[in-house]
Amino acid sequence: MGKLAITYQHIADILSFEVSNSQLEETLKNPAFNWDPLVVEGSKHLVLPAIYCRLKARKFLHLLPTDLKNYLEELTNINRNRNKALLSQVRAISKLLNEHHIEHVFLKGAALLASGCYHDNAERMVGDIDILVKKDQVYTAFNLLKSNGYDKSSGYAYDTIEFRHLDKLISENELASIEIHSHLLNRKYRSLIDLQAILNTKNTINGIAIPRTYDLSMHQILSWQLNDKGHYYKFPNFKIFYDIIKVNSDKDEALVSDLMRFKYGKSFLEIAKFYFKEFSHIQSNSYMIYISLSHKTLMNYKPLRVFVRKGKYALNFLLKRLHLLLTNTSYTRHIFKKVFNSKSFRSF
């Protein structure tokens, strides 16, 4: 395997619950083992606290260089305290929305923290607080939060058309910004998730509404594969892989079966299977074998990987901007103003 693939495999083996301690210890004790690329890639994938917590649970912290052990311990402590404050923030938001009878569920990291699925909440790094709100209550929820301390917002410099969420809401007194979602996927793929079903089947844990595990995992996977172009680039996301394993969705036959209906579901499962033993029970079809070979080839040849990724990024950027220019007059005005910086274009 190429160097990056080896680093990815080390991350997966540390996070996995099916790789034996003896096998992992043999790898980490090797004098040639290099921690530096693992830290770099673990940081990119936002799993450094999870790596530290798994090594601690496996009683392997003594294998870490002292400086690295201290760094990861400090980072994990910071994240634990942050998540404690974030959960307090989630509870306050939940109480406010419930008091005003706004139908909602928390999503992604906030929902996972609230579910109690982690042995140590420090494992999960969380950015924004994502909330799905019933479509006819989205602006009510937005204005309610805005009048209760989240009085600043951040969004695009142009008007968006049927975007997944409204502008981010920000409070100077809280850690995380809030994204109120009316949809979960980009317009082309919205039929893949039944929003009302998610709201109808939600679970409530300690007063916090979260989706059932199937919906939580399906949203995470499709959001990465489609919204964030994971399928397009055919690259792994170790934070999501670990989330899936922590809630045992890798063993959810209904979820796996539904993912197997779509090429982007198959590619997620195959790349997960490439690194994690937890997914080894999933039978690969011809398309998935192609995905595995393609991923392996890209991981083994860095120049090819860099060329393909940069080429795909450039193509995606150009097509996205062209689509916006043709379909969104607000974006077109924004571009003309930015390029020409002329008052004459304000009436365009």
Rank of each mutant, 00 (worst) to 15 (best):
I335N: 11
D250I: 04
L324W: 07
W224Y: 07
A122W: 05
I205S: 08
S292V: 05
K29Q: 03
E74V: 10
H334Q: 11
H62C: 09
Y8A: 00
N203P: 12
F60R: 10
S267M: 14
L199D: 00
H104F: 04
T66V: 07
K188E: 08
R333P: 09
S257I: 06
L255F: 11
H45M: 01
A157E: 13
R305T: 06
N34S: 09
N34R: 15
I244E: 02
K202G: 03
A157S: 13
K277N: 00
G109D: 01
V105S: 05
V105R: 11
E41M: 13
P303Q: 04
Y71D: 11
D128F: 06
L192R: 02
N21T: 08
L107R: 02
F106C: 01
F268R: 06
A114W: 08
M260R: 12
L86A: 02
I93K: 00
Q225K: 07
I129C: 11
V256H: 02
N206P: 12
F307A: 10
K152Y: 14
V247H: 03
T76S: 11
T7P: 01
T327R: 10
R187V: 00
N173L: 04
K234M: 10
P65Y: 03
L298H: 07
E73T: 01
E179K: 15
I271W: 02
I208G: 05
F274L: 04
S16K: 09
H100C: 06
I244Y: 03
P65G: 07
I282A: 04
K29C: 10
Y232T: 05
N148V: 07
E278M: 01
I193D: 03
A176G: 08
R58H: 09
K95H: 15
L96M: 05
K29E: 00
K337A: 06
A12W: 12
N21H: 03
D215P: 03
T213Y: 06
S171H: 02
E253D: 15
H281F: 04
D130E: 03
K312A: 14
N121F: 14
L64P: 07
V90G: 07
Y331W: 09
N186S: 00
S94Y: 09
H295S: 15
I102G: 03
S217F: 00
F17W: 14
Y8R: 12
G2N: 12
N316H: 08
T201G: 15
E174I: 01
E41I: 02
Y301M: 11
Y52L: 09
L322N: 11
L113P: 09
F268T: 10
T327M: 04
S344T: 08
H231L: 01
V126K: 05
H165W: 08
L24Y: 11
K202N: 05
T160V: 15
S342K: 09
K337V: 02
D167I: 07
